[in-house]
Design a protein around this nucleic acid. Sequence first.
DNA 1: AACCTTAAAAATGAATGCATAATTTGTTAT
DNA 2: ATAACAAATTATGCATTCATTTTTAAGGTT
Lengths: 217, 217
Amino acid sequence: MEKIKQNTLHGEVAERIRDMIAQGTLAPGSRVPEKQLCEQFGVSRTPLREALKVLAYEGFVELLPNRGARVAKLTRAALKNTFEVMQNLEALAGELAGERITEQELTNIEALHYQMLAHYKNGNMQEYLLANQQIHEAIVIASQNDVLIDVYKNLNHRVRRVRFTAELTNDYWSIAVAEHEAMIDALRARDGNALSSILRQHLKNKVEFSALEEMAE
Amino acid sequence: MEKIKQNTLHGEVAERIRDMIAQGTLAPGSRVPEKQLCEQFGVSRTPLREALKVLAYEGFVELLPNRGARVAKLTRAALKNTFEVMQNLEALAGELAGERITEQELTNIEALHYQMLAHYKNGNMQEYLLANQQIHEAIVIASQNDVLIDVYKNLNHRVRRVRFTAELTNDYWSIAVAEHEAMIDALRARDGNALSSILRQHLKNKVEFSALEEMAE
DNA sequence: AACCTTAAAAATGAATGCATAATTTGTTAT
DNA sequence: ATAACAAATTATGCATTCATTTTTAAGGTT
């Protein structure tokens, strides 16, 4: 995985810790050992602690006074809540994208869509999920609302671990693909309202059928 | 104003800086002088810098590598985007609150509502806006969705400066009060859908009529 | 006088050091 | 043997210090 070069040390450290949490190297509920991570990253405690403050506000860890940081548990309730919000944000994004999407963005999403279809035909679920994810992100970006984009990305970050470990049943998979077809149609027609309701339904199905909530403890 | 006791120094510092930004003591676009603030608060640079990392994530300041922190400008576009998202989040909150609000929460909101009406009758705009704000927050809390609550509070924080400097025209003010009446009715009936659409309209009106977007530079 | 170059000053980013709180370990008493 | 207490170890929170970068200022050149 190519890593985006962060200008700041604490930013780099935060990114590394986020990865470790997403990959499960740092188990949920476990404490974050400052000293050990410092040695591992070859940095002092100052930038590491700064990174922890940021991660705390992003919801990746929780800070207990005089007890350091613990990896936040992604409880079932938290996952449900996060999806509930993301669902709504994507619906808003769709609505706005209908009015604001550029030709180039549309072309790009279409390309991703066809790639995704190919992965579906090949039964390649990992690649499918990746393209799928990129399409959803692209729609959010097409909303041209920076605040929406930021908030969405943060929430997406928090749940990315479960997003890519989901198992799709064949039945649901075909439904999802059909819904994606409808999304593309709505985008081409610049029909924000249609796109919005398709997205809302799509994400509701996703949570229901892919048993995403089962993935949290 | 009573201040909530923060356990951590950096949390306390962050709160103080937020206030300074909200009150305009730290002007938008100006740099945040670490040394000066350290002396003023009587703390060292470490907790102050930790606070700045948090504030950057919250959108109050922006961090430039090797150039420290600058107070983020609340541009008109950013304000518009923020309201766009908040509007949607409140609509979602209303929908959920319809299903989930507790008796006690409802009673509390009713009480706030009557307080607000009193301030309206007295023409006390500051107090009105405060009660208004508390009602909106209470509805969001009644959604029982912690993620939603967190995101909403953060966005609300960012725009609080303009929220309380808004000037309401008498015409709009009476419309707003009527909409609030409808909100209370919908809540009492536990009608999430109705509440959701009332909130959506209410917030759209608020932005339009109170000329909130004019308040940003 | 305006502009560029260069040196001094100030500010930032990160490492280290110190005091305090929490955790672990070892001992003793029941 | 288990539980409770106490000492030692460890980790955290904050202050201080050091190195690097940026900003400011001065002096010289055109």
